[in-house]
């Protein structure tokens, strides 16, 4: 468990946050370590066969949008 000591937080709080982050990593690693469903692997393998032409202005793909407002980039319609 890594404890970040870079700020002035109470050490107890840093320990609690480290515990939380440690467990976040554990559940993420557990989920990421699971076997992938075959249909997802198959989907990627066969992507070129799909008739998905380049879309124009598809919501959610503009990652370089400015973030000048609360949640502006969540979805652009």
């Amino acid at each position: 468990m890594a404890v970040s000591l870079k700020d002035n937080r109470k050490p107890g709080r840093a320990i609690v946050e480290a515990q939380i982050d440690d467990n976040l990593r554990r559940i993420f690693d557990e989920d990421a370590g699971g076997e992938l469903p075959a249909h997802l692997k198959d989907l990627v393998a066969r992507l070129g066969e799909l008739d998905t032409a380049p879309a124009q202005g598809e919501p959610g793909t503009e990652v370089d949008a400015e973030t000048d407002g609360e949640d502006r980039g969540r979805v652009s319609r």
Partner: peptide
């Protein structure tokens, strides 16, 4: 899984 599938399809068509 559905969300990942949607994501992959959107990513491919917006490459």
């Amino acid at each position: 899984d559905d969300l990942v599938q949607d994501t992959v399809l959107k990513a491919w068509s917006n490459l």
